[in-house]
Design a protein around this nucleic acid. Structure first.
Lengths: 112, 112
DNA sequence: CCGCGCCGCTATTAAAATTGTAGCAACCCC
DNA sequence: GGGGTTGCTACAATTTTAATAGCGGCGCGG
């Protein structure tokens, strides 16, 4: 598997491992934000529920993302499935505005 | 080149093309957020400045991202180089908190 | 205890995205 | 014309993702 982005260590795009760059590396992988989004909407989720919610994700990638997000302490596994950690939940307020912003964006693109 | 994510059209991860999914698709590509981040810190930027700021990005990918972001109306080209559009600038408030959050994240990871 | 269904997940092959490096054409300034 | 910078293309090597099939484990009804 690929290296898991960790703040403080070199990541793609930053030899210094500036935390924000590590975050961009982590979230900038396919489905990473999607998985967090789904979990923030409905929790807990089983592996198959996540797979279905993401419509086209392949199990291999889902599993890879889950491992990464677990290593990053954003999600955790409970008896009932995958859940957000407190840390992961604290990311939610940053993700929520994106949905609103995306709607405006859609409107702006539609106009032009 | 790959298809450019557009809200309302099917994107990777969403047949419906829910705007937020299109956004995740767009921003979830390597370097997309990094480029926006750099531009939000320093504007305008020439191609080579962006390339240097991103340390390890390859010109092919940079160019691809720039095309996508231009199609998404987030950035534009001026006489002095690449700049954020008003729309792109409106994304900045969503990106800024990420740097702060990433610092907390780094602390939390360091503790464990 | 057997079969059934659901579970998390691995395996495999193919396609696509990204990297790394070299270099071209256009431009400006002597 | 020579030398520098700029935006960007070309191309091969590598990594990542997609798509699909299916395994082994577990709970449950019979």
């Amino acid at each position: 598997m690929t290296r898991i982005p960790t703040p403080g260590e070199p990541v793609r795009g930053s030899k210094s491992g500036a935390p924000v760059m590590a975050l961009f590396d982590l979230l900038g992988r396919r489905w990473a934000m999607g998985v967090l989004w789904v979990l923030s909407q409905e929790e807990p989720c089983t592996f198959r529920q996540l797979q279905e919610a993401c419509e086209t994700i392949s199990p291999a990638v889902l599993n890879t993302r889950l491992k990464e997000l677990r290593a990053a302490k954003l999600i955790d596994v409970s008896a009932d499935g995958y859940v957000l950690t407190p840390l992961g939940r604290s990311l939610h307020p940053l993700l929520t505005p994106m949905a609103k912003w995306a709607n405006n964006w859609a409107k702006a693109l539609a106009k032009s």
